[in-house]
């Protein structure tokens, strides 16, 4: 039987994103997810964790980001916990997707992509931790 839960602890270094994607890929393959589902889940997690690593810390010290991915009855749940500066991605302004190429910028694009490929996103600040929960309904995706 395939595992229905994977836990990861990553340091706040961009090189850790490779480890992250490999773990997500392996977990998803064991569940028999489609390439599209695997891609969207990797993308969502990479965008959020990349954001935490790039902008979440005021110092250069090593910090740990905890990620738990679990699967229950066709719903994939990703829980991310970090001790970075308080940041609620749900409040991030939407990028302007209508303007011409010269004026287009990509601020908050990663968060926007994450919101769009996942079905639910919820945020809580608990003590000195940011806790973000992402959900994706795999039943509603074509195989």
């Amino acid at each position: 039987m395939s595992t229905d839960r994977v836990s990861l602890e990553l340091r706040n270094r961009l090189s850790e994103l490779d480890t992250l994607c490999q773990s997500v890929q392996q977990f998803g393959e064991e569940l028999g997810l489609s390439n599209k589902a695997l891609f969207q889940i990797c993308l969502a997690v990479e965008e959020i964790v990349g954001n935490i690593i790039s902008y979440g810390y005021a110092d250069d010290a090593v910090h740990w980001i905890s990620i738990v991915i679990s699967h229950k009855q066709g719903i994939l749940i990703i829980r991310l916990e970090d001790d970075g500066i308080p940041f609620n991605p749900l409040w991030a302004p939407e990028p302007d997707c209508e303007c011409p190429v010269e004026e287009r910028n990509v601020g908050n694009l990663g968060i926007h992509l994450c919101k769009k490929v996942m079905d639910e996103m919820s945020y809580e600040r608990f003590g000195d931790k940011n806790i973000l929960i992402l959900k994706k309904n795999l039943n509603s995706m074509e195989k």
């Binding site: 990797c42 190429v101 694009l109 990663g110």
Partner: peptide, 20 residues
């Protein structure tokens, strides 16, 4: 190409701006 994230989109946009 099997995977692209916002970092990849950013480079394409930058190149498109420069070419424009």
């Amino acid at each position: 190409l099997d995977y692209i994230s916002s970092a990849g989109l950013r480079v394409l946009l930058k190149a498109a701006k420069e070419l424009k």
